[in-house]
């Protein structure tokens, strides 16, 4: 059976830091990027989503209580409001700290009927992790996801900023080996690329990669 609806529980929310414990960690680059973003929208509130992407990069892929508090502080919004946004969207890692690479297996219609559950079970057996779990070495996190909209490549999976499909067992063997030694397609790099895509040429500190 699919485990899609079973991730996190209210008890597992990170605690917000107390006001006097606020420890701002955004790098100079992040601060500059956020300043650029603010010029795109008529309100500061509209910066919450992109700012959370910046935070996801700056805090190593995980929107901890500190990360959410920093975004709230920098955008003059309440902690609760920013946390509400962060927990609504599935691509923000606000429940668990993810592994270095997040493996997202699509099990929606076209993928399902082209063998996606076999692929998911293979990854589970190979890495010993289920939906929402991370390997002990912190290398991989597995997630079952809804349609990634590349159904012509079913069965499909996404790792960071790259789509892989159609995949079979041999492909996954090679991919996992390859990812262990790779610094690309990480959770952090994906967040960075999303931030770079938001920014105009003059505001960009990083690069839009190929």
């Amino acid at each position: 059976m699919s485990e899609l609806l079973q991730i996190g529980s209210p008890n597992e929310r990170p605690r917000p830091p107390k006001a006097d414990e606020l420890n701002l960690k955004f790098s100079d680059q992040a601060v500059k990027e956020l300043e650029g973003l603010k010029t795109h929208y008529p309100t500061l509130k509209a910066c919450i989503l992109p700012a959370l992407w910046i935070a996801q990069r700056e805090y190593g892929g995980f929107l901890s209580g500190e990360a959410i508090a920093e975004v709230a502080h920098r955008l003059k919004r309440s902690y609760a409001e920013v946390e509400g946004v962060a927990t609504f969207y599935t691509m923000y890692n606000s429940v668990h700290k993810p592994g270095k690479h997040k493996i997202e297996v699509c099990t929606c219609l076209s993928c399902h009927f082209n063998g996606a559950f076999r692929i998911r079970d293979y990854v589970t057996a190979k890495l010993g992790i289920r939906h929402g779990e991370t390997t002990e070495d912190g290398m991989f996190m597995l997630e079952e996801v809804e349609c990634l909209n590349a159904c012509d490549r079913a069965p499909l999976l996404q790792v960071g900023d790259k789509y892989h499909g159609p995949v079979d067992e041999a492909y996954i063997d090679n991919l996992l080996e390859d990812l262990r030694n790779r610094e690309e397609s990480t959770v952090v790099q994906m967040a960075d690329q999303i931030v770079q895509c938001h920014l105009e040429t003059s505001e960009r500190v990083g690069k839009v990669l190929d």
């Binding site: 910066c47 969207y89 599935t90 691509m91 349609c147 938001h198």
Partner: peptide, 23 residues
């Protein structure tokens, strides 16, 4: 403006909510 994972944001009024920085 990039979303962050929500099918519902393809609905036009939800998309506007999301663009304005809401759920």
């Amino acid at each position: 403006h990039l979303g962050a994972g929500s099918y519902e944001c393809g609905e036009e009024s939800a998309l506007m909510s999301s663009l304005m920085g809401e759920r």
